[in-house]
């Protein structure tokens, strides 16, 4: 991660529209911002489009950035807003998808309140969510938006935002519980086989 002085120098270079500074900025932050874009889009191609558009906006509006705010947070907000714009456009041509409740096994329910999961598992689970639920969840949990802000951005009701967040959370917990249970069962099988071998 760039030190604060390096980051300031980079920002000043981008404000002066120096191509080298812009390239360095992209190299440093594109991975993080692309991961953000992936959470708000349905495909890698859409995420790439969002990323490209976001950086264009970043370079265009960087002169208005003030150093007293988090630069990464500022960029991430641009990415989220760009992704939401894409989402709105896609909503015109697609029907709203609802979450189908996963059948929960007793073991799943036991693991539901024991959030032991990895980042990869979480990303996999989030990718299973319909885009609308996924957007609400990510905006609230990861980006820190409030429900009235989410409602304004997505042009939905505040109660809709709350209900979608709740359902998305439960869905993720169940998916993660399922993944965890499967992982544990595999470990159990493996250890059992090893024990028998002994």
């Amino acid at each position: 991660m760039a030190s604060s002085e390096e980051l300031k120098s980079l920002i000043e270079g981008c404000k002066a529209q120096r191509p080298n500074a812009q390239r360095n900025l992209y190299a440093r932050f594109s991975g993080q911002l692309f991961a953000t874009a992936m959470r708000y889009t349905n495909s890698r191609e859409d995420a790439e489009d969002v990323l490209q558009e976001s950086f264009v906006k970043i370079f265009k509006h960087i002169k208005s950035y003030r150093l007293d705010f988090s630069f990464e947070g500022w960029m991430r907000k641009i990415v989220v807003n760009t992704a939401i714009t894409h989402y709105r456009k896609s909503q015109k041509h697609s029907h709203h998808q609802d979450i189908t409740d996963l059948p929960a096994t007793p073991r799943d329910l036991e693991n539901q309140h024991d959030p032991e999961f990895t980042a990869e598992e979480l990303e996999f689970a989030i990718a299973q969510l319909p885009l609308g639920y996924r957007t609400v969840f990510c905006m609230y949990v990861i980006e820190g938006f409030k429900h009235h802000e989410i409602a304004e951005q997505l042009q939905i009701d505040v109660n809709t935002s709350k209900s979608q967040l709740s359902r998305a959370r439960k869905y993720l917990q169940r998916v993660l519980a399922t993944l965890s249970a499967r992982a544990q069962s595999k470990e159990g099988i493996t250890s059992g086989t090893a024990g028998k071998a002994k």
């Binding site: 191509p19 992209y26 993080q32 911002l33 991961a35 490209q52 950086f55």
Partner: peptide, 15 residues
């Protein structure tokens, strides 16, 4: 803090 390998930037993006 997650990162994903980003695609190569488009030349038109930069000044």
């Amino acid at each position: 803090g997650r990162t994903v390998a980003a695609p190569d930037p488009q030349a038109a993006m930069f000044a």
